[in-house]
Structures are given as structure tokens and as C-alpha cells.
Design a protein around this nucleic acid. Structure first.
Lengths: 212, 212
DNA sequence: AATGTTATATACCAATCGGTATATGAATGT
DNA sequence: ACATTCATATACCGATTGGTATATAACATT
């Protein structure tokens, strides 16, 4: 006699333990810690302090510190994606979609993101030589972002918003570099204005590729 | 009866111990470690391993790990400054001086720098929230670099190499952001070509401000 | 109400952390 | 040749690291 459950259903049961909320709680309450102190700089006691849980509770939901860090990075990127999507859904033209980046990353919106600055910058610089699984995740996030900008540029070319001679990859990479570099300069000098100045160059770049 | 030594001479003796070479040796042999693993990620045993010296020897020349890290950062920046100065001394025009940056930071010259990538990027991202003395040093290095580029731009305006309407601060910050952002993108994706593409945008920017 | 299950907490572990007190050995001055 | 100075090495320290085995308590099932 067959069971009424499909394999798939059983699978879902198996991976939906009651502690799923706790897992999420741990991720959300430690995201800011990892993003400010970095992976190496964040200790287990930082995690117990931030969550007010015990080590046993954390290790009941994660295999080790590394798994927490990786899950936290996913969460931080998802959070970032939401902010971007929300800002862009108001945009009608492709140019507006690009300009949404300028608006989002401006210093006055810094409070919207997880504390500690851009996770691409933070995790990227730390992971590139020392934490390959995280580096791979950052790599994917960067490639995804690049593709998204390139899509906007190509759609804009098709819609005759942008000059057809522009190079989408080069433009996308340059916009991304300006934003990330601008964040670095403003954070380390404690001068939010520096980021806004660099973002103004991004705006110039967007204007320059727009058909006149 | 007076001693034949002046106060100044005595002072020099006092601060020129035999171990000055060892101190320098420690700095030079641990620079790459700090630049790749970061401050939090570098342990005392990393330092003894890199130097093949003992803990006692290191602590005989530095007060603590922090002092080693700060001295290493100074050394790394000095090394960077030398590379830049050397590349620029061949330049005759101010435009060439700016283009020297494009050449230096190109992927084919990455071997010239201390291993681990740009110290401004590495130390900057780690220090901004957790290591104020280092953050101050990174801050100074960034401000100095900014001033240097601004000087070149202003000299170029005076020499009628650059358009007189350009904004030196904005241009300097944007060039710096492109370079640092480009390094981040290429390092985390393992695609050196990304940096070269972004550097090409720097070149475009330099061409754009040049008088035609 | 009793039982089995599962999530969290407690208590403990070896290893490593940054750092120091002391011993040793090499060069220097007399 | 001897004493002194000074740099490096040895040996040790308490605290903290990441991690685990076990106990406990909450929940669900019957």
C-alpha cells in the first residue's frame, strides 16, 4: 500500500524543523556583526552576545561558524536586492533604473542597508585570499549585479534611450567600480560627501550614454 | 668637564639600536601576510612563521601585534608610493602623470606590489569600524593620494593641458574610486580583465578632460 | 498522562590566542 | 680578559578560541 505522501512532501517535512525560526533569528541578529567585524574578527562569543543564545543553540542550527557566515552573507545580499528592486520598481525608463542606483547608494540612504557598509566590499576584500566559499558567493553576487546592469543597458539601447555604440560590459563594470570605490573612500575617510561626489560621476556617465 | 657629545647625538644613539635591521626585517617579511589575511586574521604564530623568529624577538622590537600591523601598513604604503613615483618620473606632461596610474594598476603590473592586493582597499575595509589607529593611517594615505591627483589636475589646467572647467576634487575622487573599485571587482571574481576594462574608463575620463 | 522527539542550555575540551618573565648568548667597551 | 649591554630565544601565563558531549526542558503524539 502506498503512502499518501510524495517524496517531495517528505523532503519538505524533513528540512522544515521547528527551529527554522531560530536559524533565521540567528542570521538576522548576527548580520550586522559579521558585516562590521568581518569573518575572522567575529567570534562565537560575539554570536552568543548578539543573539542572547548559547553556543549549543547556535551549533544546533549551524554546523560551524563558517556556515553561519555564509548564511548571513546570503541574507545580507537578499536584503540588498530587495532595496534595489524596491527602488527600481518605481522607475519607468531604463535610464531611471540606472539612476535608482545613484539614489540608493547616496549617503542619505545608508541607513537602509545592514550596518557596516557594502557586503560586497566587506566580504569581497576579506574573502578573496582566505575564505574561498565566501569568495564564490561574492563572485556570484557581483556577476549577478553586472548582468542586471548590462540587461538594463541593452534594454535601453533597444528602446533608443541609450546610444547604440556604448559598451554594456565596460559601462556596467565602471558604474559598479565607481559605487564600490566611492563607498570605500567615504567610509575610511569618514566623509559621506565623497561618496555623493563619486555618485555624481555615475550620473554624468549615465547622462553621457543617453541619446541627446 | 663637558662631554664631547651634544644632546642630539646622544638622542640618535638612543634610538638607533642594533636591532633596527631586525625590526625592518620583521616588517618586510610579514607585510604580505597582513595584506592577505588582514589584521584580525593574522596571528602571532603567523608572524613567527613568516620571520622564522621567536615571539620574544618580535616583542623585543614591537610593543604588540597592533604596532607591527601599523608599521607594516606604513611600509606597504611607502612601497606603493615608490612604484608610483618611479612610474611618474618618466612622465613629462600632467596628462602622462595621470595615465601613469592606468599603467601601474594594470593587471600586468600586479606583481610589483606587495602580495594581497591594494592595501588601501584591504586595510581600509577592515579598519573602518574596528581598528581606529589603522583607519587613521588609511585615511591619511587616501587624502594624500587625492591631493596628489588634484595637484596634477591643477598643474595641468595651468599648463592648458586640461579643460579649465573641470572639477579637480570630483575628478580625483572618481579616478580613485574607479581604480579601487576595479581592483575589488577583479580580485573577488578572479578576472584581471575587469580591472583593465575599468582602467580603460579612467583613460577615457582623462581624455575627456584634456583640451582638444 | 505517559512517551518520544526535538530544540536549547550547561559544562567541558584541547588548542591557540596575545603577551610576559626570564634565561641565554653574542657583541661592545674597558 | 672581563664586565656590561643588548638582542634574541625559551618557557610559561591566563584568557579566549572554535567546537562537542551531555543534560534539560519544551513540545508533539498517542
Amino acid at each position: 500500500m502506498e503512502t499518501p505522501y510524495t517524496d517531495r512532501y517528505i523532503c519538505i517535512m524533513k528540512f522544515t524543523p521547528r527551529s527554522e525560526e531560530t536559524r533565521q533569528f540567528i542570521i538576522e541578529s548576527t548580520a550586522a556583526v559579521f558585516n562590521t567585524k568581518g569573518y575572522a574578527g567575529t567570534s562565537l562569543s560575539d554570536l552568543t552576545e548578539a543573539t542572547q543564545l548559547t553556543k549549543g543553540s547556535i551549533y544546533g542550527n549551524f554546523e560551524n561558524k563558517e556556515e553561519v557566515a555564509l548564511a548571513v552573507f546570503d541574507y545580507t545580499i537578499a536584503h540588498r536586492d530587495k532595496i534595489i528592486a524596491k527602488a527600481q520598481q518605481k522607475s519607468v525608463t531604463n535610464k531611471d533604473k540606472l539612476l535608482a542606483y545613484v539614489a540608493i547608494f547616496g549617503s542619505e540612504h545608508s541607513g537602509d542597508f545592514i550596518k557596516g557598509g557594502c557586503p560586497l566590499l566587506n566580504a569581497g576584500t576579506e574573502a578573496d585570499d582566505t575564505f574561498e566559499p565566501l569568495r564564490k558567493k561574492v563572485n556570484k553576487a557581483i556577476i549577478d549585479w553586472k548582468k542586471e546592469i548590462e540587461s538594463i543597458l541593452q534594454a535601453g539601447i533597444a528602446a533608443k534611450e541609450f546610444n547604440k555604440n556604448i559598451l554594456p560590459e565596460k559601462t556596467a563594470l565602471s558604474i559598479m567600480a565607481l559605487i564600490e570605490g566611492g563607498i570605500l573612500l567615504s567610509k575610511t575617510t569618514n566623509k559621506p560627501a565623497y561618496l555623493n561626489t563619486v555618485l555624481d560621476s555615475v550620473k554624468d556617465m549615465i547622462d553621457a550614454i543617453s541619446r541627446e
